[in-house]
Write a protein that binds this DNA or RNA. Structure first.
Length: 499
RNA sequence: CGCGGGGUGGAGCAGCCUGGUAGCUCGCAAGGCUCAUAACCUUGAGGUCGUGCGUUCAAAUCGCACCCCCGCAACCA
């Protein structure tokens, strides 16, 4: 097991309010971080999230609301923080790209790379749509009109700064083929490996002239330019957890990251640009980059233009945090796309949470109440049936592999499979009750058997509560509490069925 | 055109790499039970595994060809 675990979410771009996609990545990261805190100690885990706040899109979004960019991002960043609170996200740090610590590091990185000759100025030629304020590459165009607004484009040529991506292709390809865990899941790994095989990397334009786009970090060696997107945003992963000294040496107790969780849309930036930037700086590469899938809304892609964006807060208000977290992590294997609908949330809720888990807890507590006056029977040597042994075996097995997530499950972020494992205990327990028929035991005065039976259930439920802690912290705690130490504190059903 | 993913009982998926009684969840039907949130447990119905050809004693699984769906433009996890 690793000694420290540094996990990140992407920096969310704050040109609009957070949606379920943002919450998905962050909940997954929170779940892993919670799991790892239990496994290796809370001081050894660092979960970083934050917001990406520069760029033209934000400049324009701010304008649309009649705010200056800073006012605008301040307001949106708060929305993200509030959402994380509502979703019970426990992060160690929240970095904003407008913060001084970040700006300084970005400029330092630019400086170092410029001195090393990794960044160079060159004339940049392309087609510009003035009304849209958008720059188009030749390859994006069918004719000389703007793909967005169809107005005619203007050819402009300006000096910009470029990062020498192209000269790094060889070692990156070798690195990737030597590190099968670098990009996950494996389908994405193949995708990237093939991309590098089939395409030649071109140097990356990393600047914009200030007069055209002012809301960004100025290049230290050319104050008339600001950095452009990725050179700003990606650096947060190091700017938040360390700094460069005068000699350009980076110091950090957390770097390299153990896991960058990202959506599949930004895989190339993380799997190609970012490693090359780090390599050029002489820094270690992250251990693993995991690209998860997207939530579709029914069959459709979620997008602002379609107007089908789902607000996580609405879902939380409707179904509760715990259900929302459970649904996202359970319904679809991490890595694949999922189909989001209230209907499927309700299905999961009624099936897994109300009928299986909630009802198991409730019926067990009721039996303890009725048969033992609310006292959990004392431990003793009781005759165990075969089923009881199977349940105990299962519990031990899962315990041995570490809090319900076997090592492969954790490294492959297979939340869904982990929960399935846990639910097997639940199903076994429900079946065990059915087969043991405690209502007959009580009639026949078989108290010892009844005690043994209840203890098996109590153990099973405790185990389940521990297992689900990273996924549904509140539910876990509530179950432990209701079970009490010796005397139960039965409450209302955990998940009252939605009719 | 090309690239990637996919087509398995009503729905969603696993199985395919390493050929050999087609499995899971939900839904549906019948039954059982009463500790429980009309919940839980059991059983059952329902599939030419996209199409065709080939390899093989044997193909959902391997090979070839074809058909259909999704993504490969932008905002964005």
């Amino acid at each position: 097991m690793v000694k420290k675990f540094y996990i990140t979410t992407p920096l969310y771009y704050v040109n609009a309010s957070p949606h379920i996609g943002h919450s998905y990545t962050t909940i997954a990261a929170d779940c892993l971080a919670r799991y790892m805190r239990q496994a290796i100690g809370k001081d050894n885990v660092w979960l970083l999230t934050g917001t990406d706040e520069h760029g033209q899109k934000i400049e324009r979004a701010a304008q649309a609301e009649g705010l200056n960019p800073k006012e605008f991002v301040d307001a949106t960043a708060v929305q993200f923080k509030e959402l994380w609170k509502a979703l019970n996200i426990f992060y160690n740090d929240f970095i904003r790209t407008t913060e001084e610590r970040h700006v300084k590091t970005v400029q330092r990185v630019l400086e170092i790379l410029f001195e090393k000759g990794q960044i160079y100025p060159a004339k940049y030629e392309g087609w510009y749509c003035t009304p849209c304020e958008t720059f188009w590459m030749q390859t994006q165009l069918k004719d000389l009109t703007c793909p967005d607004c169809s107005r005619s484009l203007e050819k402009i040529s300006e000096t910009n700064y470029f990062f020498r991506l192209s000269e790094h292709q060889d070692w990156l390809m070798k690195y990737i083929s030597a590190h099968p865990d670098f990009i996950k899941p494996s389908s994405r790994y193949e995708e990237m490996a093939r991309f590098l095989e089939l395409n030649k990397l071109e140097d990356l334009c990393i600047s914009r002239p200030k007069e055209r786009m002012g809301w960004g970090i100025p290049l230290p060696f050319s104050p008339d330019h600001v950095t452009y997107v990725w050179f700003d945003a990606l650096i947060n992963y190091i700017s938040a957890v360390g700094s460069f000294d005068d000699k350009g040496k980076y110091e950090s107790q957390w770097w390299p990251a153990d896991l960058h969780l990202i959506g599949k849309d930004i895989l190339r930036q993380h799997a190609v640009y970012w490693p090359i930037m780090l390599y050029a700086l002489g820094l270690e590469l992250p251990k693993t980059i995991f690209a998860h899938g997207w939530w579709m809304i029914g069959q459709d892609k979620m997008s602002k233009s379609r107007g089908n964006v789902v607000n996580p807060i609405d879902m939380v208000n409707k179904f509760g945090v715990e259900t929302y977290r459970y649904f996202l992590l359970r319904d679809v294997p991490f890595g694949l796309d999922g189909s989001f609908s209230e209907e499927s949330i309700i299905k999961r809720f009624n099936g897994d949470l109300a009928n299986d888990l909630g009802n198991l807890v409730y019926r067990t507590l009721t039996m303890i109440e009725k048969y033992f006056d609310g006292n959990i029977p004392e431990r003793g040597v009781f005759v165990k049936g075969k089923q009881a042994e199977l349940i105990e075996e299962k519990i031990n097995l899962i315990n041995k592999n570490g809090i319900g997530l076997s090592p492969s499950v954790i490294t492959d972020c297979n939340f869904s499979a982990a929960l399935k494992e846990v639910w097997e205990i639940i199903n076994m327990a429900n079946k065990y009750i059915e087969d043991t028929k405690p209502w007959n035991l009580i009639k026949e005065n078989k108290t010892d058997e009844l005690k043994g039976f209840i203890l098996v259930l109590v153990d099973a439920i405790r185990e389940v509560a521990i297992q689900i802690h990273s996924f549904m912290p509140q539910t876990s705690e509530s179950i432990i509490e209701q079970l009490g130490k010796d005397k139960i504190k039965k409450g209302k059903p955990l998940f009252p069925r939605i009719v």
